[in-house]
Design a protein around this nucleic acid. Structure first.
Lengths: 194, 194, 194, 194
DNA sequence: TATGAATGAGAATTCATTCAT
DNA sequence: AATGAATGAATTCTCATTCAT
């Protein structure tokens, strides 16, 4: 059994999400995370190399859920446009169901330093690659404009989703994010359709 | 003559942009900014309340240029779609011509804490309001889909532009950002057209 | 059978010498010593009261070899001057044949704190007492200056030997220490002769 | 006026000697030194790069006194043997007159880590070079044995002095160190005489 | 006997801000 | 207005030791 499978590993990850969401990135001291996780400060360092390692792991573990979900969607027998819709919906659902996580990914983790952000971007890249698969399939199948720049299209899709979620979080999630998914889907679809 | 008109005010603002761009947000100490501006540390505090005030002022002063430009575009006798295109192009041009500023607004200033980001968002809101004016005019004139959610449309426009610029900055601006403007324009237009 | 006779006791002592010599006093953690000895961290505490106890025991065990050797030399039927020469030679030989031990006693163990050094000095005292026996015999037999201060003489003998060994260790033992013994002997003899 | 001439520089150096002597090397926290010096913790870092820099500077500043004194002795028109005597006496006098300094140089500073000790040795080397000058002159003038190994002789001189002082410090300086100087001188002289 | 996961105290250093000059 | 020396609060990480198994 490796470290990541031990119960305390996930315990600390989850504690970190809560502490960062409730206190903000810069007020999320290791001792607070340890306390929230119900372990001693030193125990943190049996599972993580340093504080940065906790934060990257938070992102990896949680982003992993998005990636798995997206892989599952892609593997299904559906049109690219339907897949796009499912991706948006499930992305919104996951964050709407875990406000703490939404705060952390949309606001707090972006305050991290350059190095950490580079590492986070590596994790993100995997997600964006899957997104590209949908776009390419849509272009090949004649659903999406064959002439469109794949990078720009991806930036539109991700940028729109990201901006929508961030706005929702900054407005204290006082409206229903998931309800917006169909409209976002329609908007993006129009932009990309053949 | 108020403080903002005094030469040292702008001198410090510009020094801050350079220092933050070259050292990163977390390595932009007040003493470095003072040195770059050619003044003593204490002098900073004759022009700014505190460090946060410098950063907000940087954003306000620089964002003001975008706002002025956009106001000028809106005031012209043009179709909403043409205005949208001009907005994208001039936005890209301004950042492409000042890499330091691009780094600061797209990457470094986002590492600021929650409070500062809220204040930055207030400044940004003015810009987004002007953007809304174009979208509303386009809907009224029958250019854009009258059914579309104005907030989502704005998030798509801003999100796409923002993501495009950030990706360009993170790729060390090794390709021409301004050249992408027409394609981004076309993509967004398709998404919003009636 | 007491603890000191059990195989793991010596195993840990020897592991400590190696770990300290190779990593330095401040990087010789208990866990490293345990690993080198092939036992669990907790096992150390079945044989030693605490970390300091390991270090004192290292010194005692190893110094014991010097003391035995010296006792054997003293018991022989020889002139004081010859005994002095044998002492120097065998002292040098022992350290030259165990570089790890030389590094530990000449450099690393001296970085220990005040308390530990006091305890080490107690162990050393036994050796110095035997040294005194040779000097006293020499004075009684008319070989050494009867007027000389025994304490000062001992400090000269030990200080010279110690300084010579330390210099050799600090120069990465790139010359032959044992070859220096006759010269050191002659030098000290001249200083003490009647 | 450079940093070393500013009053606070020496103030901190002297505070460090007292704090280290009274608390021991490992209990000499920066905050204690700052308090003893009557400055804020942060002020220390305006004059010293880090804690190690304080300790090296202590050694350099204080060792400088020994070096100056020795240079002055060497420059006089005296026999090598007289110079040797003056060196021993003034070395003993300086340490006997500043017990704190004696504790620091003979016991506490030797607990420093490998890196720091290497730097201290560089400072010490200057002193040893001057010592060599006396020995060489003595050999050239026929006072000292022309056949003697200069390195071994120096190790005898320094080792004997060092061991004598350390023993005195460890015995809580309950006897008069300076009174021992003539005897030490005589002992060493006999060892080296032609 | 032996294990090794868990504990938690302890300290160097940075940097925004002040204020006497 | 301008200076810049001085301030001091605040936080990560290590590692000797314990104790349930």
């Amino acid at each position: 059994m490796v470290k990541k499978d031990k119960p305390k590993y996930k315990q600390i990850i989850n504690a970190a999400v809560i502490v960062i969401a409730e206190n903000g990135y810069h007020q999320a001291q290791v001792s607070k995370i340890a306390k929230q996780a119900g372990v001693a400060d030193g125990t943190i360092y049996l599972y993580f190399k340093n504080k940065e390692d906790i934060l990257i792991s938070v992102f990896q573990e949680k982003m992993g859920i998005f990636v798995s979900k997206l892989e599952e969607i892609i593997s299904r027998e559906l049109t690219a446009s339907t897949k796009l819709g499912l991706m948006i919906t499930s992305h919104f659902e996951l964050l709407a169901s875990d406000i703490h996580l939404a705060i952390v990914t949309q606001l707090e983790l972006r305050q991290s330093n350059h190095d950490l952000r580079l590492k986070i971007n590596n994790v993100l890249r995997e997600y964006l690659k899957l997104m590209d698969k949908i776009l390419i399939k849509g272009m090949e199948d004649g659903e999406f404009d064959i002439e469109m720049d794949i990078r720009l299209a991806r930036q539109m899709v991700f940028g729109t989703m990201d901006e929508t979620i961030t706005t929702w979080v900054m407005n204290d999630h006082k409206y229903d994010l998931v309800e917006l998914a169909p409209q976002v889907h329609r908007l993006l679809l129009k932009g990309m359709q053949a």
